[in-house]
């Protein structure tokens, strides 16, 4: 074994991942070669110091200011979420109120045949519903319903809409912009596929789930940016 081959295997020797045969070859060379033995000792010192480095943490220049920036951003997001929730609730309640108000405030004037027909329709409806429910209960298996299998797929209408808009606008972009977009999109898609593969292997892996969510939100962000260009 020459020095080049020996030095190429030094890292694996230090990490203990060489086969017995390789380790024996490298060991014999190191016994004879002072230069390679010196490199091995120096790499070993680097690895040992690196293990210690983990325990030394550094504080940011101004921890308090960093916390204030973080908490301000979070508070702003929370306030925005609350405003949006309040607006949605107001819209929903006003819609409900208007439908209810219209029904309650309407003046109903029905003739006797109309009233009889309405009652008959109501009776038939209730009877049909009862029969259907009883039959469904009989058909249902006595065991507990099984949970659907874990299945993940990317089905996001917003994403589709954004993608369509981007495709429409692509024609107007210059080649550099198109290249930048394609590069960014391929990187994000790679991350999405990677996370999906991981989730297929271990469906309950929290981190892969987060990574997937991250990648999807970055994809949306990217598409939003380029959809307006």
């Amino acid at each position: 074994m020459n020095c080049e081959k020996c030095q190429a295997l030094l890292s694996e020797l230090l990490d203990g991942t060489l086969t017995d045969e390789e380790r024996a070859h490298v060991g014999r060379h190191l016994d004879e070669c002072m230069v390679c033995a010196g490199v091995r000792a120096e790499l070993s010192a680097i690895v040992t110091t690196a293990h210690d480095v983990r325990n030394y943490t550094l504080a940011p220049p101004n921890s308090r200011a960093l916390w204030l920036r973080i908490s301000n951003t979070i508070e702003a997001e929370r306030a925005q979420e609350q405003r949006t929730a309040a607006q949605v609730a107001a819209v929903v309640s006003s819609r409900r109120e208007s439908v209810l108000t219209r029904v309650l405030h309407k003046h109903w004037t029905l003739s006797l045949p109309q009233l009889s027909a309405a009652v008959a329709a109501l009776v038939i409806g209730v009877a049909a519903l009862t029969v259907f429910t009883v039959q469904s209960l009989r058909r249902a298996p006595p065991t507990e319903a099984k949970l659907p299998p874990v299945h993940r797929s990317i089905n996001d209408q917003e994403l589709d809409v954004l993608m369509q808009r981007v495709e429409q606008r692509k024609g107007r972009w210059n080649p550099r912009m198109r290249e930048a977009f394609e590069r960014n999109l391929s990187v994000i898609d790679a991350a999405v596929n990677d996370s999906l593969e991981q989730l297929d292997q271990s469906p309950h892996d929290e981190v892969s789930e987060e990574a997937l969510n991250d990648a999807m939100s970055h994809k949306k962000e990217l598409l939003r940016e380029f959809a307006d260009l």
């Binding site: 020095c3 030095q7 230069v35 490199v39 010192a45 110091t49 480095v53 030394y56």
Partner: peptide, 18 residues
């Protein structure tokens, strides 16, 4: 990777600190 040759200063690297 640059292969370390015998021509390099043979003295060992100074003690590595964090």
């Amino acid at each position: 990777v640059q292969v370390v040759q015998g021509t390099e200063n043979p003295a060992s690297m100074p003690v590595v600190d964090r």
